[in-house]
């Protein structure tokens, strides 16, 4: 199981990557593994606004459907439309295949997120 350094992680297994003041959000390798074969990703619309911990969409496998939550508050700038046609890309590489790109509303939200090391410990605790 892969945990990428340099990303922020949420307890609900989303990752966040900051790039030029904007942020990409996806689900962790652990999360995709738990779900199994992903069959559908429910994407929000560009322009939608969410608070931290709001559900912005869902990731479905045959046997489960999990909501995905905002690690931080923000506005949707872009959604990864390739996932509509090929949801299995998340299974192939959960970090390469981001789900949404946002503009962060409140930078202080980031402070409560975990580092790679903390996230690894979090997973071990959960198990």
């Amino acid at each position: 199981m892969k945990i990428l350094e340099g990303l922020y992680y949420a307890k609900s297994h989303e990752w966040l990557r900051i790039e030029d003041g904007e942020a990409y959000i996806g689900i962790s390798d652990f999360a995709q593994h738990e779900l199994g074969d992903i069959v559908f990703v429910d994407l929000p619309s560009v322009g939608d606004e969410f608070d931290a911990q709001d559900s912005f969409g869902a990731v479905e496998s045959v046997k489960a459907a999990n909501d995905v939550y905002m690690p931080v508050s923000g506005v949707i700038l872009e959604v990864n439309e390739i996932l509509e046609e090929s949801p299995e890309l998340i299974n192939e590489d959960a970090y390469e295949n981001w789900i949404i790109k946002i503009r962060i509303k409140d930078k202080s939200d980031i402070e409560v997120l975990m580092t790679a090391l903390q996230y690894e410990e979090h997973i071990q605790e959960e198990e």
Binding site: V39, F40, V62, A64, A65, D67
Partner: peptide
């Protein structure tokens, strides 16, 4: 198919 939408999996959602 598409059973992940249904009550036996998704429960209250």
């Amino acid at each position: 198919t598409l059973q992940a939408r249904e009550q036996h999996i998704r429960r209250e959602k």
